[in-house]
Amino acid sequence: MDLTRTEEQELIAATARELLSARAAAAGARAMDGDPAGHSADLWKELTGLGWTGLPFAEDDGGAGGDFLDACLLFEELGYALVPSPLAASVAACGMPIARFGTPGQRERWLGALAAGTVATAAPLPWDRPGEGPTAARDGTGYVLDGVAPFVPFAASAENVLVAARLDGEPRAFWVDTASVTLHPVGTLGFDRPCHVELRDVRVPPDAVLGGDRAPADAISRFGAAATCAEMVGAAQRVLDMTVAYAGERHQFRKPIGTFQAVQHHCSDMAIDVLGSRFIAYEAIWLLSSGRDASQEVATAKAWVSEAYERVCALGHQVHGAIGFTQEHDLHLFSRHAMSTALAHGDANLHLDDLATALDLP
């Protein structure tokens, strides 16, 4: 595994950081906190114009010819700037399963639309309630979907949703028009404006099912979890940078608090967690980009990064003291983000249980 960035990847990351830093005041989490959509439509148009919405898709499918790792550099910078966006839901959790398992016709039609700026999202089966979620039944040559897909991010902004539903007891993935579903907005700590998506006798044609087995439905969670890890890595790096800067500026007893050993230990522990999170996340991302089976690596990354990001935020609050809890300071926004993303696509306990099962541990 070589995680050294190419010149092109360095350019992608640098361009993304510069752009998102300039747009954060108008499109960041603080600015979007009261917005019903939860993200900036103007920024989305700008991202589409830059080709970000099609970055990991093949040129024959209307994309830019990059790969999933390239897209994760964007997700990381979105986390660093704390800019809410449906980019990860649309491109990673929805687009990548299509790119990996779709027929040529599905890729041309669906990925072409995503690359052109159509907002889509994905609805994996609920990880915290096994056996629940939407079901599918055959209806002639097509299918009928029933049930509720919970906590679907940016569903109100999406034109389509890739729904994981059980067909004959096995998860399958279906491409659904959001005009045919009922959305129930849910208030959460996060910034992704989730909705419970209610499907009642939603009929879809035979070519709306993705792949011939459960692999595409599993890929929704796998790519979604990996993209979330990249976002958390960027956000944790930002919390570390904010904390180190504050430790150099805040004076106590006529000295910067960064000269105190206890504060230095906190910052060192944060740096270790950020670096470890980066390595473990991008190992899983690299394997996914290479087309390999990365189920155990993704589970390991999601379990570790979820807890590490929360630890980084907790230590950041220790260094900042009371100012970090105030509404005016951004640190509490990152803490909200950490709690929300830790639950996205499965919490640490779920992924550790999955790892124990895969490794046949008692």
Score class of each variant (00 low, 15 high):
S289Q: 06
V161I: 12
V161S: 04
M1K: 11
T6M: 09
E249P: 01
L125N: 04
A179H: 12
G248W: 07
T182G: 03
G346A: 02
R30K: 13
P153H: 10
D347V: 02
V244H: 09
D168R: 13
G54N: 07
S90Q: 09
Q252G: 03
D35S: 14
P171A: 02
A164C: 10
R109Y: 04
A225H: 09
T48V: 15
A37F: 01
A219M: 00
K255L: 12
W304A: 11
A37T: 11
Q9L: 00
H332M: 09
Q327T: 13
M270Y: 05
E7I: 12
D241N: 10
M1A: 10
R292H: 12
F191S: 09
V186N: 06
A120W: 11
N349V: 13
A179R: 14
T188F: 00
E76C: 00
V91G: 02
T243C: 07
D330S: 06
G248N: 09
Q318T: 15
D61R: 10
E231K: 11
E108W: 06
A93N: 07
A136M: 05
V204I: 10
F57N: 11
A64P: 06
D201N: 13
A344N: 12
A64T: 14
R254A: 10
D60A: 14
P84I: 11
D213T: 09
A179S: 13
H265D: 15
L240M: 07
A281G: 08
Q296L: 02
L167C: 04
V305F: 00
L355N: 05
V144M: 02
A165N: 11
A29D: 08
F57P: 09
D33M: 09
G187P: 07
V163C: 04
T15E: 14
D213H: 01
E76Q: 13
R23C: 02
A303G: 03
G38M: 08
G63K: 08
G346V: 08
I272N: 15
G291S: 05
D33G: 09
H265N: 14
G190L: 00
A308I: 05
C267V: 15
F325H: 15
V239Y: 02
I280S: 10
L331H: 05
D35C: 06
L50D: 13
A230G: 12
A16C: 05
H184R: 15
P256K: 11
L87P: 07
C94P: 05
F223K: 10
T103L: 00
L111K: 07
A358N: 08
F75W: 14
E59L: 01
S157G: 12
A314K: 07
L47N: 10
Y309T: 14
G102S: 01
W304Y: 12
V161A: 05
L315Y: 10
F279S: 13
M232V: 11
G324M: 02
P84S: 06
C229F: 05
G28F: 00
Q327P: 01
R203T: 14
A26I: 11
E77K: 03
A120T: 15
L315D: 12
H39F: 15
G131R: 08
P56H: 05
P206C: 00
